[in-house]
Structures are given as C-alpha cells and as structure tokens.
Simulated assay, not measured.
Amino acid sequence: MTTSALGEPCVLLKLGEIVLKGKNREVFERRLIGNIRNALKELDLQVDVRQRHGVVAIFLPEGATVEQADTVAQRVADVPGLVWIHRAWRVPKDVDSVVKAGIEIVRDREEVARKATFAVRSRRRDKRFPLRSNELDRLVGGEINDLFGLPVSLKNPELTVHIEVDRDEVFVFTDGIPGQGGLPVGTSGRALVLMSGGIDSPVAAYRMMKRGLHVDFLHFSGIPFTTSESIYKAYALVRKLDRFQGRSRLWVVPFGKAQQSIRSSGQDRLAVMAQRRLMLKTAEEVAHRIRAEALVTGDALGQVASQTLQNITAQDNAVDMPILRPLVGWDKTEIMAEARRIGTLEISELPDEDCCSLLAPKRAETRAKIEDLKQIEKRLDAEELIVQLADSIQEYKL
C-alpha cells in the first residue's frame, strides 16, 4: 500500500451497549477510556486516546508502523465495552484525499485479483463536510469501479470500504476485529469469584467482567493434604483472565484441615454440600474484608449433584450476600466453547489434585435439607472456623 495516500495508521473503536445509557452514558465512557489507557500501558507506546461521538480514536506517535497499529488493535480487543475495533487510516479532511485513500486501501487486496463484489459505506459525523454520505459513496465507489473493475453489491458485498468523516479528519478502513461487547469493567461494582481449577468458574468470571464487574478471585486449596498444583492452575487462569480487566487479585485459602473436620462429622452424603456452604461463608467473610459486594460461582443448574435446584437453594441460605451464577442456564458444551474462545480451556484441562478430591462420597445428596446442614455447621463451630480460614488467606500477586 502507498502509505502517503493512505495517511497515518490509527485505531478506531466502536462502542456498543454504552450508547444506550442516556444521562449516565458519560460515567460509562469515562471508565471505558480509563480501561483502554490502562490496557495500553503494557505496550510501552505513547498513544493519544480521544473520545468522539459514539467512537474512540487511538492515534499513534508520528512514524508509527502498521504493525504497531495492529498490536494496539489486538490489545484493546480484549477490553469489555467495545463491539468493533478497526485498524484505520487517518486522512486529511478534503474530498481529494478521501478518494485517493479509498483507492489505495483496496489496491493490494486479494478481492481485487478475483474481482469480488464491493461497496462503500460512508458516515458523515461532521455535517460541514461538502459531500453527503451517499454522494461520497458514489464518488469513491465509482473511482474504484473504474480503476479495478470490481462489481458493486450494496446488499451483500465481499469487500466493504468504510469512510467516516469526523471533526478534524476522515477515517478510512475495511475489516475489523469483533470486540468483547458488554459494559466497561468497574461500572457495576466489585465481586469475588470462587475460583476452582476447573472449566466453569473462569468462564463465569469472564461473563461477569463483561457485565461491568471488577472481580477478585478466591481459591480453596487442599493444602496440607494436597500439592500446590491447583494453586498454580488458579494462578495461570487468573493471569489469562487479567487481560480483560487488569489489576486482578488471587487469594488462596488452605482448606484441607477444614475438609478433614467435615469428613469426621460422619455425614458422608452431605459432605459436599457442607463443604460448599463453608466455602461460601468463608468467601463472604473475605468479600466483606476486600469490599466486594457479591460472590460469583460457576454453577450450572443440574450439572452435578451440588447444583440441583434444592441444593442451590441450600447454598444461597448459607450467606446473606448475593451469589451470582452467570452460567446457570448453560450446558457443558456451551461452557467449554466459551472457555476455548477466551483461552482458559487448555489450562483448566491440565491435571491437578484439587480440594474437591478430598471429599468424594460414593453417592452425594441431591436434595439436601438446610436444617441438616446447619446441624453439621453447629458441630463444626462454623462461625469460628470461618474467621480462622479468612485469617489464613494468602494473596498471590500477578
């Protein structure tokens, strides 16, 4: 491509759900801009992030390469709140420059060699520009058609040239990267995710990030009766998820002795449910300490014995804090597909000895009664045990 005709490489970001926020929109946009800037800090590249009406433009330093623009685009594609990321060209705001850029952006495309159909889609955010959107479409499209002989298809083009006339410049681009969508992380508060080394909880954490929650992570380890493998997995999963929000924190509870106490209570069929309630109670105590407002789990209705409707109700009874279950209506195939898409599946499938392996009854209770569970907790002196467990947590910094 002739970069002189195309101008300067930049990145154009399209907002999604935020534009529907009415009078609160400014709050969401400010948080999104902050999240974008934080995500780009790791690239060690001085960029200029500017908010425009309905879009965000990222301008690179003078002399920046197309490869650097691609790197910026790939990084911000992980930031929730954006629906499309376009590696665009910033051209001067005059008709002649726009026409030349439209021609050059398709010149080396493979669609030209196979005479693919095309269309030009213009959007004129600055109404002072001398040509209307449809006039600009016809002008640039006509030049491309004359030079390269590409047939026009307005309904289903194989190649689309986008032209957006902004306040100070014009953006020209073709393809885009789908964004994460959702809301900017931090706009919905803070929550604590009960993080196992399995497939479900990382996906649940990601889904809550997309709804604007900033999440911290709490992992229950079977130490001293298991190895540290599950901690390594939890750490690796949190690192993988951190690209969506930044500043993630992982807390680990040594839970093995508490499980030993549950096992010695003699209630084999209720052991898993007693453990789940104790985990939730401990998580609630930790959440209060770190000022989180809700708990998040990877429960999916009916997936395992502890996730029947009656057992979920018994777990909700254990705490006063809201328990969010974003995967409650998903099946395992859907969860695995999402885990594969966000890059956590391969880590989750690594072998490890997690704390759940210490309590594996031959037949788990599917319709646990709350009063029976409360009796177990009374024998365990659960309230004191919860404080001890919360006091024993250790933070693993990324």
Rank of each mutant, 00 (worst) to 15 (best):
L359H: 03
V203Y: 08
A274E: 07
L301V: 11
L324V: 06
D331P: 01
V95M: 13
I386C: 08
N134G: 02
E346V: 01
D108N: 10
T187I: 10
I370E: 09
R25I: 03
T160P: 05
Y232G: 00
R239W: 02
D299R: 14
N38T: 12
L241P: 14
A364N: 03
P224N: 12
G198Y: 01
D316H: 12
C10Q: 04
R277L: 01
L150R: 02
G186Y: 02
N134K: 06
V272H: 13
L192Q: 11
R291V: 07
E29T: 00
S348W: 03
R31A: 09
C356D: 00
G343T: 03
C355T: 04
I177S: 03
L237M: 04
L6K: 01
T313S: 05
N311V: 07
T333G: 08
T227N: 15
A69N: 01
I103K: 09
G266M: 13
E42L: 09
R123S: 11
A236G: 00
K233N: 09
R109W: 04
V95I: 12
A236Q: 09
K93R: 14
A382H: 04
V99E: 05
V120W: 11
D372S: 13
L359K: 07
A69D: 00
A191C: 14
V76N: 02
R125W: 09
R277V: 04
D372N: 14
E42K: 11
Q303P: 03
E346G: 00
V106L: 03
K155T: 15
L147R: 15
T227Y: 04
T333Y: 15
R109L: 08
I144H: 00
G302M: 10
V140L: 13
